[in-house]
Design a protein around this nucleic acid. Sequence first.
DNA 1: AATATAAACGGACCGCGGTCCGTTTATATT
DNA 2: AATATAAACGGACCGCGGTCCGTTTATATT
Lengths: 198, 198
Amino acid sequence: MQMSRSGEAGFGCERLDAARNRRLLLEAALDIVSERGVEALTMDDLARRAGVGKGTVFRRFGSRAGLMQALLDHAQRGFQESYMSGPAPLGPAEAPLQRLQAFGTARIRALELTGELRRAADVDGFTQHRHPVRVLELSHLTMLLAALPGVRDPELTAYQLEAFLEAGLLLHLHRTAGMSLERITEGWLKLVEAVTAE
Amino acid sequence: MQMSRSGEAGFGCERLDAARNRRLLLEAALDIVSERGVEALTMDDLARRAGVGKGTVFRRFGSRAGLMQALLDHAQRGFQESYMSGPAPLGPAEAPLQRLQAFGTARIRALELTGELRRAADVDGFTQHRHPVRVLELSHLTMLLAALPGVRDPELTAYQLEAFLEAGLLLHLHRTAGMSLERITEGWLKLVEAVTAE
DNA sequence: AATATAAACGGACCGCGGTCCGTTTATATT
DNA sequence: AATATAAACGGACCGCGGTCCGTTTATATT
């Protein structure tokens, strides 16, 4: 009988061909996205570029949103480390209020880079709030808010803050409504001040 | 030569067959949605039920999201009248701060009824912020916020408030995160207080 | 009433995301 | 090395949203 797979610790226990195909697919996806943008990526195209069958793509990532999620996860890894264990003002050396403000400021600054990717990973509309990247950010915001005396319901307040940072909204404010990133950032700072005031 | 159509004043200048088909389609769509839910509505199905060609559906509503928008617009007409010209606390007889609070409270209370419809009308992710229903609500919030002394940037603050009332988020908070409507409403009231405090 | 014409119609068609299931292959076991 | 088997593979297939374009029709004009 075959050993049952552990299933823990990420993808370390994948079969060799599976791991190789994952890598091929992610590389091909990144190529397409950087060449022609997020919208232009189709799953058939991706399968062809990576030299695998279409079924394999869906076996690996579940859906188009899942693939985007994987790309986003990879692209955000540096940011995640920064706000979890990096230097001030994002990291734990800084006071909670300033970390909150720095968090949003960084997110808004990165809008041009990762905005499209985030929006593509959010298409779902319902499960978008369960994506690992978002869940992690949310628990981070909740933790920071819980450390401040003026906040009654840190979890719900975290959702309120995160809602403003949603990629679709920020892109709309910047591109369609024509607001400058400075103005949006200022709005973020004021919002954080407001919800944390005693 | 034929008279050029005015194009103004809604759909009053539609050809008779066009107007009839619009009505047939909206009725059929409402039937399907109330019978089997928003998700179950397909454009082919709708065309068949209404007894028209598929092209006609898209000629009328542009897209699935456009159709949902039309349904939502119809469903929300009463609410729109309430907050624009109805009695207190939603209407103009009440003070701005209380109207703001009543607005969100009403939206949260109506979640079970129109939440799914709103989410379906929002699928786009980018143009969702340009839909007439939302634009109207947004300008209403902006106006109320502009009447309060503590608000520096009413337009941006309106977006921040509206972001929390987004249907996908509220449904997630209520159904997935398990928060009661009372708690969510309380969060809304606190948020309004916070962003309007001097 | 006859006519012209812009508007509306409708269904064949397209490309996409996603599924299904018979085939292949990596790996544990002997 | 041979074997068993669970996992991975891949491409035909499906249903959907959306488009295209030849055909029909409401309506203004004569």
